[in-house]
């Protein structure tokens, strides 16, 4: 691949904390290498800011391998930047050319309050998982492997749902700030497998209930979540959640238990 250097203008959202109003600050970036990742360019910026005795830009990052779901930047109006099925850490500067201006914003959603600059609080996702995104397994003797038969096609489908890294790009990209793709994927990965079956009804009710409490918007079937998801999670997961929820509502045991959380083993 052709090697080149470029000069760029960065417009970055700076915000001291949750309460204070944020603003854009403009930085001139000189001699950025085409091989750098987008986050490495931010490292260069931050080193410079530290040397100038200024506050570095705070952003989330962890593995820098595209699998942890920590990085979260809204770049030029797209979650995780211009490339499809990609995370910010895997976005490379060869996507840009000399003289470009790049606008970088945090995920914007009332349910993801800004901690500082480009870092947002995504604990709402953790609380949704705590509400039911697990299976209850009692400790004791380990059961034989393969004692529970799993259909090959279903296990593949469950795996596709389980590739969700919980980064929140779906919420960030959704014009309504809806979290249904995330919740749909987390419900699907368990609903598709026999191990997830016993608790499936209480699970979908509790997780949807928690999602609503967190203040996410409602799904408008626009499907920008699927288009922007770094793992390409399909909106079929949302449809499955819709079916599961209606099924749980219609089932006799959920009619007799107004609060299924008490039954959930947690």
């Amino acid at each position: 691949m052709e090697h080149y250097t470029m000069n760029l203008t960065l417009k970055v959202w700076r915000q001291k904390n949750r309460q204070e109003k944020g603003h854009f600050e403009t930085y001139d970036m000189k001699d950025i290498l085409s091989e750098m990742s987008f986050l490495e360019m931010f490292d260069v910026l931050n080193e410079r800011l530290i040397l100038e005795n200024k506050e570095p830009v705070v952003f989330d990052q962890d593995c820098r391998e595209g699998i942890c779901g920590a990085c979260s930047m809204y770049i030029d109006g797209r979650a995780h930047g211009p490339w499809q099925k990609n995370t910010v850490c895997q976005l490379h500067m060869r996507a840009y050319k000399d003289g470009d201006t790049i606008v970088v914003e945090p995920w914007r959603s009332a349910a993801f309050p800004i901690i500082k600059d480009l870092m947002v609080d995504r604990k709402a996702f953790d609380r949704i998982i705590e509400a039911g995104g697990f299976i209850s397994v009692n400790t004791g003797n380990a059961v034989d492997a393969n004692s529970t038969p799993v259909d090959r096609a279903k296990s593949e489908e469950a795996f596709d749902s389980a590739t969700c890294i919980g980064c929140g790009a779906c919420v960030a990209a959704c014009p309504n700030s809806s979290a249904v793709l995330f919740v749909g994927a987390k419900i699907s990965q368990l609903a598709l497998l026999p191990q997830g079956d016993p608790e499936r009804k209480a699970r979908v009710i509790n997780m949807v209930d928690q999602m609503d409490k967190e203040g996410f918007g409602n799904c408008g079937n626009i499907y920008n979540c699927e288009a922007e998801c770094p793992k390409g999670i399909s909106v079929e997961n949302i449809a499955r959640m819709n079916r599961e929820y209606l099924g749980a509502f219609s089932s006799s045991e959920m009619q007799t238990r107004p609060n299924p959380a008490k039954h959930n083993g947690v």
Partner: peptide, 16 residues
């Protein structure tokens, strides 16, 4: 409800 789920709008939002 959906409008109020995002208090500050994006400066720039593009759609594929």
């Amino acid at each position: 409800q959906n409008t109020s789920a995002r208090k500050i709008n994006y400066y720039r939002q593009n759609f594929p």
